[in-house]
Every structure is written in structure tokens, then in C-alpha cells.
Computed example of a mutant assay.
Amino acid sequence: MSKSNRRNWFGGSNNGRTVTVIEPEIERTQRRKAKIAFFVTAIVTALLAGTVFSSYVHPILGGFLGLLAGVLLGGTVAVLIIIWPVLRIIWHWLPEILLGCFLVYGWTWLMGATPVWLSLLILAVIIGAPSAIGPARRAVLSAFWCLTVRHRLRMCFAAFIAHNRQRTLPFILFAKPTPAGERVWIWLRPGLSLSDLEQEGQTQKLAVACWANESRVTAASRKYAALIRIDIVRRETLTADVLSPLPDHVPDDMPATALASPATPPVGLNFADVPGPRTKRAPNTNTRARIPRNPEPSSEIDPSDYA
């Protein structure tokens, strides 16, 4: 009979095979951070809280209350640091978790509030409507691709994109559908920058991993360099055919030789026969009086000159 491996918070064993949720290196790093945070928070909180409590109660009782507050607050901070990798995984799977809870509890409530035949009818309508209605089907597919892209990008960060010394991956915030594909916002951790993702071949690897045609990485904020945006391009919207309603407004009895607009020349007229626009001569803005080069002497005689 084989012995099972030791179980802990971050991993389990199944028939002698260990199933690891958090990598051992990250687990050791989080524990070391938790110990440091516990002692620092407990000491600082105990000193400050003990000083405040001593002003209202006996100093010995105030010191004991401050020590208790420090231990409680330090333990809370340490627990949060230890379980932070698990919280990251829960955040990454949060849409799927909420969707699963909604389906389970919604189906339970529906079965208890309505007859079986009505429950099945409502379920058939909910499932069949996205398949029959175009906008509903496209909305469901867009949501599906948004959820898929978040997981594929996380796999890319863990597989081939550089990370820091503590092996902490970027924090994938949320995604939304766009006319060309999906747009994902990501918060980079210390040790990564936008230039690491803009290296030659990295964006194409992201597109391959996300089953897309192209991926574009840009900065999402002018204030925070850690906030970036990845656009996953699945289709080219500019090359698609667009139906125009303008032909519906053209009368059926309009001749083929009719003018398209008042400024269009008649059909069959050569451009050489069309007179060009006349240019007006600009007025002379020089208002200074012109002085002749050889002025003639005046014929009038002033009598005062002979006085």
C-alpha cells in the first residue's frame, strides 16, 4: 500500500501524484513576505495602539490591548499575503465561478418555483434564443472569446514572456469585445515593461496563442506605465462589405445620363472644352504715393519771391 504525500494549503496528492496549485518557489516567497509583514505590522501597531489605549485606561491594560491589536492586525496581513496567489487564481476564474453559481442556483430556484415542463421550456428558450437570433448569438460568442483570451494570455505570460525574479505574473484585469476582436487591460508587475512585450516576435506569439490574426500592445494610461492594453485582432472590419441605404433613395425612372450633382460636368463633354476658373487680380495694397522720376517745374509764380 503506497503512502500518500503530505497535503498542504497549496497542493494535494492523488495516488502518490502531487497536484500543485501554487509553485513551490512562489509559496516560499509568500511565506517569507508574510513573516516579515507580520512582525513589522504587529510591532508598529502594538506601539501605536498601546500609546493610545494608555491615555484612556491603565498603562498595563493599554499595553496589553495594544499587543492584542498588533497580533490581530499582523496576523490578518500575513494571512492575506499567504493566500494572495490563491486570490489571484480566484480573480482569474471569477467570471466562470459566478456563471456556474448563477446556473446552479438559478436552475434550483426555477425547478422549485415552476413545474418541470415549464422549467424545461424556459431552459429551451434560453438556450435556443442565442442560436436563432443573430445579435444574441454574436453577443454570446463575444463573451466566450473574452473569457478565453484572458486564460490564453495568462498562459503566454507563464510560458514565454519574461517575469521578475519572484516569478509573479502580470495582473489581468478585464476584457471587452471590440468590432475587430477583444481588448484586454493588464497591470504589469515590477520587472516587466511595455518594451518587453513589444519585442520582435512577441506580439505574433500572443496572436498565435489566442487563435487570432494579429495582436497589438499599447499603453493604456499616460499616468501609469504599468497599465497596458492588448488588442486581439480576429477580423478586418475595414475590408468588410457594408450595405449602403443610398441606392434606395434613387428614383427608378432616373436616366443613366443624369447629373450626379450640380457641380458635375455634362456627360460626353471633354475637359478641354470646360473653361477654367477666372482668377481675379489682387488689389494693390501699397498705398504710398508714387513720385515721378523727373518732376516738371511748376508754372505758377509766387509774388513773394520778387518782393
Rank of each mutant, 00 (worst) to 15 (best):
R137C: 10
L188W: 00
G70V: 04
R290D: 10
S119F: 11
A220W: 04
V19C: 01
Y105V: 11
I133V: 15
K3M: 09
Y105L: 12
I127G: 13
F271L: 09
R167H: 14
T237F: 09
L173P: 01
V242A: 08
F39E: 00
P262D: 04
I126R: 00
T114A: 14
L153C: 01
A143P: 07
I291R: 15
D302H: 08
D196S: 02
V140E: 04
I126E: 05
L141Y: 00
G50F: 10
T29L: 10
L61F: 05
G134H: 08
R278E: 15
G112H: 12
K3H: 13
I22D: 09
F64M: 14
W145Y: 11
W9V: 04
Y105A: 11
W187D: 05
K35R: 09
L87C: 10
T108S: 08
I36G: 09
G268M: 09
T237N: 10
V233N: 03
R222E: 13
F38S: 06
T20V: 06
R167N: 06
E25L: 15
S304P: 09
P59H: 07
P251I: 01
K33G: 02
D273E: 13
G106Q: 10
R6P: 15
L169N: 00
S261I: 08
F53T: 14
R293N: 09
H163T: 11
N284H: 10
I161A: 09
M254K: 11
V250Y: 11
K176I: 13
E214D: 11
I172R: 03
